[in-house]
């Protein structure tokens, strides 16, 4: 894939770092458990129609984070559109599908597993595992495990997106109080009507209690 854009700008707030640590942890664990050569989590940027590498482990770890590529292309496009994971066992003979890693790392995977990262029916991104060891797990068992990692990665990506939406545009690194308030606002805005009302009432009560401090 062609990495046309610049690396994504991370604002470097503590919250952001925490979420990226979570994503890195998911993908590193996936690579370790699958005994794979590499793994990645890419976030879908709906506005630009691109995927952005958010976390990479193994091959390409130092080169790919922040890189962008067209979301409709290749196996990533396949799983995003079909909402179904897939494993392709002989992808190496097709340069079109191996290009994303090859262009930046000179590494061409032979096999690739990919799963969509979903929030309900909405696609958030793609989890890929490259060249897993085929010894301990059958393809069906690997697919089952991949789904579990995809579930974890989806939850982490939801947190990343919520945090970014909650943070005002142009805001710099937040202090602990601001970060807590932003996280809380993100959580509340994600609730449905009734629960949001209850949450807002709790916040109002808390504010009143804090006002009463001596």
């Amino acid at each position: 894939m062609n990495h046309s854009g610049p690396p994504a700008a991370h604002t470097g707030t503590g919250e952001d770092e925490g979420h990226h640590a979570l994503l890195r942890s998911v993908v590193r664990t996936a690579v370790a458990i699958f005994d794979a050569r590499a793994g990645s989590i890419a976030l879908l940027d709906q506005d630009s129609g691109e995927l952005v590498f958010e976390a990479v482990a193994g091959e390409g770890e130092g080169a790919l984070v922040g890189r962008r590529f067209p979301a409709e292309r290749g196996i990533a496009g396949w799983v995003l559109q079909s909402r179904q994971p897939v494993e392709v066992h002989d992808v190496d003979s097709d340069a079109h599908f191996a290009r994303d890693f090859a262009e930046s790392t000179s590494y061409v995977p032979k096999a690739l597993m990919a799963a969509p990262l979903l929030c309900g029916d909405e696609p958030l991104g793609v989890l890929e595992v490259l060249d897993r060891s085929t010894e301990p797990r059958t393809p069906l068992a690997a697919m089952e495990l991949l789904a579990l990692f995809a579930d974890q990665a989806s939850l982490a990506l939801v947190l990343v997106q919520r945090a970014r939406r909650a943070r005002p545009v142009g805001a710099g690194p937040a202090g602990p109080a601001e970060a807590a308030a932003q996280a809380l606002a993100g959580e509340i805005s994600a609730l449905d009507g009734g629960r949001r009302e209850i949450a807002l009432r709790i916040v109002s009560d808390l504010t009143e209690v804090l006002h009463r401090r001596p």
Binding site: S82, Q84, P85, V86, E87, V88, H89, D90, V91, S93, D94, H96, T138, P139, L140, M143
Partner: peptide, 21 residues
């Protein structure tokens, strides 16, 4: 059969794919 299924691939070739699809 849903494991390592030979399936048509864009551009005229085939690949072995796994999935309920």
């Amino acid at each position: 059969r849903g494991v390592q299924v030979p399936a048509a691939w864009p551009g005229g070739g085939t690949r072995r794919c796994t999935g309920n699809s």
